[in-house]
């Protein structure tokens, strides 16, 4: 795999994101976020800053997800539709280089989007913190760590969407499956906890229990990436858990991308 070719595909993907005015749209969303955060937070009875943080993180998460699905869905589809992929395949460049280059471009665009939204959000929270000081000091470190893990969730969702795109023949299927994986990945841990209780075993039975367990081990455990309680309420972060989560994210992303390159390499273009 040549770095030069990888960088070229990455640059194309970034330029594609800029050409589609994705970052411009994100700046507009950021401005709306900045302006609406104090309005939404003012409804709170006792936790203005907590409501503002919760609102900001939810918007960043939602916008990030929409953007991820949108970009990841068209990342391959556009080249397939415009038949550019045929030209690329005829060149002495591996499909893995093409796919990973595209993914890296996607990762840069998402990073920029999360950073822009994070900065706007931090600005609004900074002002609100001065107007409505909370009982406990706002955990700025936790806020940025939380955004970092949010970014990794989006990377994994993007990689999963790309994996589905390498095998699917329609655009809608990868999108629908990715949304399903995203939702399931946030609840698989809770389901597993329930299955392990005596009530869960009694109500669901062994087969459903086994299925729930299997789903937990296959899907990414996004609950571990969710640091909102720690950010919003200043609950202490566990350094060891964060490190393990980060390594887990790298491992999971690596496996998904590897699977995507394998399936893409075997795909036949007619």
């Amino acid at each position: 795999m040549k770095t030069k070719e990888l960088t070229a595909f990455m640059t194309v993907a970034i330029k594609g994101g800029i050409r589609d005015r994705v970052l411009a749209a994100i700046v507009v969303v950021g401005l709306i976020l900045l302006l609406t955060t104090p309005v939404v937070a003012s409804f709170s009875m006792r936790q203005v800053l907590a409501l503002a943080t919760s609102y900001s993180l939810s918007i960043i998460s939602l916008m990030g997800l929409l953007l991820t699905l949108f970009i990841a869905m068209i990342l391959l589809a556009k080249d397939l539709e415009q038949r550019q992929v045929y030209t690329i395949c005829s060149l002495p460049i591996s499909r893995a280089t093409y796919l990973l280059g595209k993914f890296l471009g996607f990762a840069v665009v998402i990073f920029l989007a999360v950073s822009i939204l994070g900065c706007f959000s931090a600005g609004a929270l900074f002002v609100l913190e001065r107007i409505h000081p909370a009982e406990r000091a706002f955990a700025w470190g936790g806020f940025f760590i939380g955004l970092w893990f949010q970014y990794w969730v989006l990377l994994i969702v993007g990689a999963i969407t790309i994996l589905f795109s390498t095998v699917a023949t329609s655009n809608f299927l990868p999108l629908a499956l990715s949304v399903g994986v995203y939702l399931g990945s946030y609840s698989s841990e809770a389901v597993r906890y329930f299955i392990r209780t005596s009530a869960g075993q009694k109500e669901l039975g062994a087969a459903v229990g086994l299925f729930g367990d299997l789903v937990y081990w296959i899907l990414p455990n996004f609950s571990a990436f969710d640091l909102k309680a720690q950010i919003i309420y200043g609950v202490a972060l566990n350094a060891r858990e964060l490190l393990l989560t980060q390594l887990y994210a790298v491992g999971y992303l690596g496996v998904v991308l590897l699977l995507a390159t394998l399936t893409f390499a075997r795909r036949e273009f007619r």
């Binding site: 409501l51 919760s54 939810s58 998460s61 969730v153 946030y186 809770a190 329930f194 919003i232």
Partner: peptide, 17 residues
């Protein structure tokens, strides 16, 4: 709450509020 939590992914805090 478990149903809402499953449907709202990581937005359950905001939903609670």
């Amino acid at each position: 709450a478990p149903v809402i939590k499953a449907l709202t992914a990581d937005h359950y805090q905001f939903t609670s509020q």
